[in-house]
Design a protein around this nucleic acid. Structure first.
Lengths: 162, 162
DNA sequence: CCTCCCGGGTTGACATGTCAATCCAAAGCT
DNA sequence: AGCTTTGGATTGACATGTCAACCCGGGAGG
């Protein structure tokens, strides 16, 4: 009965049940992500990327940051950030300015329009998170979700290092 | 002491702890998704989208499907599928052919190259799922992950209908 | 000084997604 | 027949991501 699923270390592939959970999990988190993104978009005309950048700048001393510092802070590749900042600059949400101390570098500044857009987006965004995520789960499930995230993160980190 | 978090129905915004869990959860699932995608890419030269399409076609009777049927099956908008099929057709993974019964429609056929690419990707992909997802969690956590996904899905569905 | 390399950033090419507009043939309606 | 509607699918414009190549200003060695 269990002959076809070799024990411990021999088994490399997920069982049908494990696979079902995987698919459920990954597809559902994807839907969740896109629903939150769409609420943010329709309520504030901001993308999740915009929000992340504006959040970081808003919290930064003097509402400005070096480009690579910002990239590290939100966990993006520099190239991605550079493209995104270009689009945000066109929309007037941020401003790039050459760095005083290092002529190679660039400082990213929050503009008044950017600060305004971020302020207006915060409450609706948090409300969406509450409605679509927090309210969907029991308190136990919420805690479990946090633990699952932590376990996954830890596991991914060890695998990365290798 | 609890005066600042109105009870039941009054509170719209997540608490700091709920927000922390949200961020952990969504960021971690994102990293997980991209790590799995990158394994799939490097081991099989397929994107997650390619994989979903090839999986559906492989399991379809006669390895072919109507375009909108396929879209419904994998939960994509038709436009997205159309763009993706264009790219896959250029790479020779699938073939589009006008439908015999409905002159408006298109049939999507798996090609030999597509079937081959899918066959070669299956085991490495499943192994990646096992290594990066299943192995990261305890059996209890795995079950909890499934329940969380189900709860989220159910909640999102009711919100969608509204 | 000159060359080589490095770190900060940008750029271009391309894959992937969304949205709205369009095309076309089949049905309905008049 | 002529006109509108509907359903299947594609298209174009644009946002977002990744990857690799590039530009540019400093050093480090020679």
């Amino acid at each position: 009965m269990t002959k076809d699923t070799p024990r411990q270390g021999g088994r490399q592939l997920p069982t049908a049940e494990e696979l079902r959970i995987w698919r459920d999990f990954i597809e559902t988190t994807d839907v969740l992500r896109s629903r939150i993104a769409s609420r943010l978009q329709s309520e504030s005309a901001l993308s999740p990327g915009d929000y992340a950048v504006l959040l970081a700048l808003t919290e930064a001393p003097e509402q400005q940051m070096r480009s690579s510092e910002l990239a590290a802070h939100i966990g993006w590749e520099r190239s991605r950030l550079s493209h995104h900042l270009g689009r945000m600059e066109r929309r007037g949400l941020i401003r790039r300015q050459e760095c005083a101390t290092d002529p190679r570098g660039a400082e990213v500044h929050l503009t008044a329009a950017g600060a305004e857009a971020f302020r207006g987006s915060t409450v609706p965004h948090l409300r969406a998170i509450r409605e679509l995520f927090v309210d969907a789960l029991t308190p136990d499930q919420l805690v479990a979700a946090g633990e699952i995230a932590a376990a996954l993160r830890a596991h991914l980190d060890t695998r990365q290092a290798k």
